[in-house]
Design a binder for these strands. Structure first.
Lengths: 157, 157
DNA sequence: TGGAATATTCGAGTTATGCCGAATTTGTCA
DNA sequence: TGACAAATTCGGCATAACTCGAATATTCCA
């Protein structure tokens, strides 16, 4: 039986949270952490572990580990409140961090592919590896460029 | 005890395969499938389930599920040999498919964020969601653009 | 420094995932 | 269509990942 008395989030908000989770889970983010991220996206201000645990209906320890996981991903930042032992969490405003991981991945991949050209005998295979490396590098650069432009335009604002 | 008699891949090749796997596993690709992808990247021509199983030292059923998983990801394509029940697998030459998934993810994400602006009360939060949606959309478009350019230049070649 | 409030870690139980060999199904040729 | 070869599915086992409540550690105030 769901506890309806402490319901601080609306039905549509709950749905949003679940949809965010559905999006992130396939990318390796654990369910609880993904839901927490959705929750924080909606929060008008930083949230405490207690309110997280209540609203998401999870234990406080789960809230704690999920929050620190998101913190390691740098999707979320911790805000220590002066004069209190409470820690508040909020979404990081460097949202390009989601893409930074992909960027690193693409960089490693093209490096690896290029390095492998020496260990394949067939010329056609070598060519394919080189093509792939080029492609991923191009895509990575495009994304990086967009990211750079964006952070510049954000500073101006 | 490792079976050395049927070793069709060299030590450096094995290392390459493991490195590819290390790269893909954190992105949710199962170990075996990731290794298989690395293997196929090195193969001069399409490989049968049997040779896969031997070279990667996995069971044939594992090879089968891994191959079809990669096929669903469209990282790999199946090549049915006319006049034989053998199926051969090779890496897909549309290697932009690795990025296509990320593209879809970014599109869904920005859509979701934009749709959520109506369900948050605080104006500042709404603004943040809009900013994020814009950002991911920009990044996605940049990547898509690069992809498009690439496939055009490939056709010319 | 002691004590209360809070966060974090630990150990156990539960669930999900991956791999394998055996059984089944599918596809090809005679 | 029968028989054979290959792919696929199935059930069980082992391992890893998550979640939780309890125990422990940390932080702040008096």
């Amino acid at each position: 039986m769901p506890n309806l008395s402490n319901m601080n989030i609306t039905e549509v908000q709950r749905r949003f949270i679940e949809e965010i989770a559905e999006l992130f889970v396939p990318w390796g983010v654990p369910q609880t952490a993904a839901r927490l991220y959705g929750y924080l996206l909606l929060c008008p201000e930083a949230a405490s572990l207690d309110s997280i645990a209540v609203d998401l209906e999870i234990s406080k320890s789960s809230a704690s580990v999920a929050a620190r996981l998101l913190e390691r991903y740098t999707l979320v930042r911790r805000r220590s409140v002066r004069g209190s032992k409470r820690i508040l969490y909020e979404v990081s405003d460097q949202y390009d961090e989601i893409l930074a991981g992909q960027n690193r991945m693409l960089l490693s991949l093209s490096d690896l592919l290029r390095g492998a050209e020496e260990i394949v005998p067939a010329a056609a295979t070598r060519q394919r590896l080189e093509d792939m490396a080029d492609f991923y590098d191009t895509a990575r650069r495009a994304m990086d460029e967009a990211r750079r432009k964006w952070s510049k335009s954000k500073k101006i604002r």
